[in-house]
Nucleic acid binder design. Structure first.
Length: 475
RNA sequence: AGCGGGGUGGAGCAGUAGUAGCUCGUCAGGCUCAUAACCUGAAGGUCGCGGGUGCAAUUCCCGCCCCCGCAACCA
């Protein structure tokens, strides 16, 4: 628990649609981890942002009848709005369309790859599916047409820059095996190692620039724009001023952890490390691959109609209840499940009957029988709690806290201060003070998960007043 | 097809070679400080199916069945 610098990132999100519960999850997970590190005294930097240099924005904007810039600004405002409602404490929100913050760093990184001799031009011929806005392979075709769009792809020939990804296969493999680059959990580590065992192919790293192109121009070649993943991945360092004012970069890079979803593992655990190796920069220390949230055992989709909108939950239950559910009832590593019914049950059992009721019982006793606020003494966090956080198992950390809540409820019943105080006032007060002290300890551990609630509870303790009903029971 | 994850009391999940645990729900009792809350106890499972190895398998091995994900606006 030595104080140190801690840099944590979320993926950057596509602004072509509104954010859903999955985005809310990864961001909340990251926020809980960031808040924990601040709490234990680490100098913490938390980055999130949006991935805006994508061709799809153009058509989405056209459909919406606005300019691409308006469209982006609008979506990003929506992102920031959701993050505000979730009480996300990010230090920076990076937009890859930002030509001042992001572009110079991405260009600097490109130049490093080029200087290392890892970029080369190659004639590329492939089947381009207009629907995908991407190249697809021969074997994807069904009766000569793209199975998803039902149209025949165009055979396109173009000259692109290629990145020598293959060159770094072995180095990356070694670093992952040695734990120098830690992939969490184990199952994902195996997955990426088996991918590396097959060997990495060099990848196209640019596209020809057209009048309608979106993206960062390749330095020294105005006919090309950077491949979107090359552009996007570099956000983790451009946000720290890489290639410009590198004060933050020097302080915080390498990142302690990139938090990502399993669908983008190969970009983060293969392509990104290769880029950094090529540029001679250190690799991130770990990559945390979280699982997906299912609804009723199925992936959320419009067709199934099982989508749960984070806004809906936020409105009905409030910020901290949503944060609590995501942190405790969704495992970071196994697919989790959420239904409205399940959410309500957890809310009533753990927040209304559990935490909320406990605070009410103790503070009622304190307010009635103590003449002044209790003087608090804080103990160091228990190992079970800190270990869970070091392993990024925030659900286990929360389990520990709720175990303490249950134990405190038992203690009240056993010691019966409400009864004792009638016979021996001093003794009764002593018990109540003990209870308040323990509540304050619990409250402190609650902070990363439920910052607003934690504040309300400590305020109640400091003023020796029973607070308003924290979590009214829902029927 | 291939790859990956999973099938444990009503629901959601842990878990281990040797009396199967947790949370929610249900039922009974207790308490009265508290949000009809809290505490104690109980009922409820042949741990997907078939075979193998072992003194012993839910746990290891083999085969099979079923569900889900990876390709679709989607972490």
């Amino acid at each position: 628990m030595a104080e140190k610098n801690f840099y944590v990132t979320t993926p950057i999100f596509y602004p072509n649609a509104n954010l859903h519960l999955g985005h809310a999850y990864v961001t909340t997970l990251t926020d809980v981890i960031a808040r924990y590190h601040r709490l234990v005294g680490d100098t913490t930097y938390f980055l999130t942002g949006s991935d805006e240099n994508t061709q799809k924005i153009l058509s989405a904007a056209a459909d919406a009848g606005v300019t691409p810039q308006q469209f982006l600004d609008d979506k990003v405002e929506g992102f920031e709005n959701l993050f505000k409602q979730l009480n996300i404490s990010y230090d920076q929100f990076i937009r890859t369309s930002d030509e001042k913050v992001h572009w110079p760093g991405a260009v600097a990184l490109w130049k490093k790859l080029d200087a290392a001799g890892d970029l080369y031009k190659k004639q590329y011929e492939g089947l381009y599916c207009v629907g995908h806005e991407a190249f697809i392979t021969e074997k994807d075709l069904v009766d000569g047409a793209c199975p998803d769009h039902g149209t025949a792809p165009e055979r396109i020939q173009e000259e692109n820059y290629f990145f020598k990804l293959s060159k770094y296969t072995q180095t990356i493999k070694t670093k992952i095996e040695s734990g120098e680059l830690c992939i969490i959990p184990e199952s994902r580590r195996h997955e990426i190692l088996s991918l590396l065992a097959e060997g990495l192919q060099d990848v196209s790293f640019s596209r020809p620039r057209t009048p309608m192109s979106v993206g960062i121009p390749v330095p020294g070649d105005t006919t090309q724009v950077m491949y979107v993943w090359c552009d996007a991945l570099s956000n983790y360092i451009t946000a720290l001023g890489y290639g410009q004012d590198e004060t933050l970069y020097k302080t915080f890079w390498p990142a302690n952890v990139h938090i990502i979803g399993k669908d983008i593992l190969r970009f983060h655990a293969a392509m990104w490390p290769a880029m950094l190796l090529s540029a001679g920069e250190p690799l991130p220390k770990s990559i945390l691959v979280h699982a997906m949230i299912l609804s009723g055992g199925r992936k959320m989709s419009k067709t199934l109609g099982n989508i749960i909108d984070p806004q809906e939950l936020l409105q009905e239950y409030g910020t901290d209840a949503v944060r609590y559910f995501l942190a405790r009832h969704i495992s970071p590593f196994e697919d989790g499940d959420i239904t409205r019914e399940h959410f309500k049950d957890a809310y009533n059992a753990d927040l209304a009957n559990g935490l909320g009721n406990l605070v009410a019982r103790i503070m009622q006793l304190a307010q009635t029988h103590l003449s002044a606020p209790v003087e608090l003494e804080y103990k160091p966090f228990p190992k079970e709690y800190t270990d869970a956080f070091e392993r990024f198992e925030i659900n286990k950390a929360a389990d520990h806290v709720w175990g303490r809540i249950q134990a405190l409820d038992q203690k009240i019943t056993e010691m019966a201060p409400f009864k004792v105080v009638k016979e021996d006032e001093e003794k009764g007060r002593g018990i109540i003070i003990e209870l308040v002290v323990e509540l304050a300890c619990i409250d402190q551990m609650l902070e990363p998960i439920m910052p607003q609630t934690s504040k309300k509870i400590i305020d109640a303790i400091m003023t020796n007043k029973k607070p308003e009903n924290l979590f009214p029971r829902k029927e």
